[in-house]
């Protein structure tokens, strides 16, 4: 590392150089993603156990989810993941304006995801397909269909909170980028948020078939 890059503004005192700082941040973020996987893992375990106990009920209940809304949301999230990756690429090439466009696209798609989610949720709340003791829908055969909807609301709900968090952070990134805080030398926060956003996408890639397609 040469002298000119020894002390940029973003370098904290306990790191020897920017490279070390960036690598540390990245490792830290990956470990954070690991904790996220295990956090969701508890819910996946919940799903797996009850599905193995009540396969018929899960199959009957999943038919009440709207495949097309779910599929649309999958497409929306995948495209948002692509725009996020392209935002990072643009910043690597120093094209700040493109970064802002792609980041804004990501936020827009995330909002679309949440709006579709809102319509799905409100429909289910209206019908009484609710978790646990709030469940009052009749017409799903099998034991304890409320547990299917507990799993559904918990897993998509926790995922939804992560999408909301992503929207907040990416909005902050747009502001920072337009103020010129990032450059091809330093764009760690965008890269970190990108990794987080891809994980959110990744989790949805599994939630979608588990709930909407095979139940």
């Amino acid at each position: 590392m040469n002298q000119t890059t020894a002390h940029p503004a973003h370098l904290q005192h306990h790191f020897t150089d920017a490279h070390q700082q960036a690598e540390s941040a990245k490792l830290g973020l990956w470990i954070f993603l690991l904790t996220e996987v295990l956090l969701f893992g508890g819910l996946f375990c919940f799903y797996a156990i009850y599905r193995s106990w009540n396969p018929d009920m899960f199959h009957n209940a999943h038919a009440f989810l709207n495949v097309w809304m779910g599929a649309t949301n999958t497409v929306v999230l995948i495209v948002s993941s692509l725009t996020m990756a392209l935002a990072i690429r643009s910043m690597q090439l120093g094209r700040r304006k493109h970064t802002i466009v792609f980041l804004s696209g990501t936020v827009f798609l995330a909002c679309v995801f949440m709006v579709i989610k809102y319509f799905e949720y409100s429909h289910k709340i209206h019908l009484g397909q609710l978790p646990g003791k709030w469940y009052f829908f009749e017409g799903i055969a099998g034991t304890n269909p409320h547990i299917f909807f507990s799993a559904y609301f918990l897993m998509t709900g926790l995922h939804g909170f992560h999408v909301l968090g992503g929207i907040a952070v990416i909005t902050w990134l747009i502001i920072k980028t337009s103020r010129g805080s990032f450059s091809p030398e330093y764009y760690t926060p965008i890269e970190m948020t990108g990794l987080y956003w891809h994980l959110v996408d990744l989790i949805w890639i599994f939630l979608f078939p588990l709930f909407y397609l095979i139940g």
């Binding site: 490792l27 990956w30 690991l34 996987v37 295990l38 993941s81 990756a85 990108g194 994980l199």
Partner: peptide
């Protein structure tokens, strides 16, 4: 997604280890 969007294919192997490790324990 993991290989290309998250760059696992190109990055330091340690990140792959962290990610695969989390799935293993899950």
């Amino acid at each position: 997604v993991a290989m290309f969007f998250m760059h696992l294919k190109y990055d330091n192997r340690i990140y792959m280890l962290v990610f695969v490790g989390s799935l293993l324990f899950l």
